[in-house]
Amino acid sequence: MTRYGMAIDLRRCIGCQACAAACKVANNNPKDVAYNIVYTKPDRDWEGSFGTAVVKGALANDNAGGTFPNCTMVFLPVQCQHCENPACEAACPTGATSKDPETGIVSVDSELCIGCESCIKACPYENVRTLVKSPEYYLDVVVGEHDAPPHVAGTVEKCTFCKNLIDRGEVPACMQLCPGRARYWGDLDDPNSDVSKAIQGRDTVFLMESAGTQPNVYYLQ
């Protein structure tokens, strides 16, 4: 059995937005669809707000919290956490949202999704899903991988862990190269995977752990 997961080292993340940009292009995402958002967080409360992001309406990224010069600024990349116990799966009335027992990847089947937003309401992680209304693209050219998600109006989209890429032995787009060397990826059930080794001996936190969904994205402090 494979249980894909990620670890994101918050000591290393420099908020450069490379993972967000990589995701956006590789998946040919429309304007209003972001699977991966790097927030600027003015505190270290992991049960609280993720912080602010321009893509979610903030005027600017990279503003600190606190009082100068005693400030706090954490860069927090957030995507679908591919939970062990996904609240979205339980909430989905059509079976569109499911967790793949072979990989642990939680996905939404656009053929079955009716856009009821039950999953969005159930998920403790705000903004990791988007109900695609009328997909508009920045470019006339189709970019990204040829088998990028289809972006069907009236369906919900989110991070797929780039299943199309990992199925052919590549890594998720956000993992291809992190400038801060903050991201780790692999099979959490394999103790020799990059992600398992990255977690070992580190102080880890989960976002919204109290929601009980058992996320598979570890944050290293």
């Binding site: 450069c16 940009a21 990589a22 292009v25 590789a26 470019l139 970019v143 291809q176 190269l177 400038p179």
Partner: peptide
């Protein structure tokens, strides 16, 4: 041009690099 990814240096992976600008070159 549909995508850009970081090139890999066999003899210097510490210099493998890309950023949001490099990643959005198709645009």
């Amino acid at each position: 041009v549909v995508r850009t990814t970081a090139g890999h240096f066999d003899d210097g992976p510490e210099f493998d690099r890309i950023c949001p600008k490099g990643l959005t070159q198709p645009a």
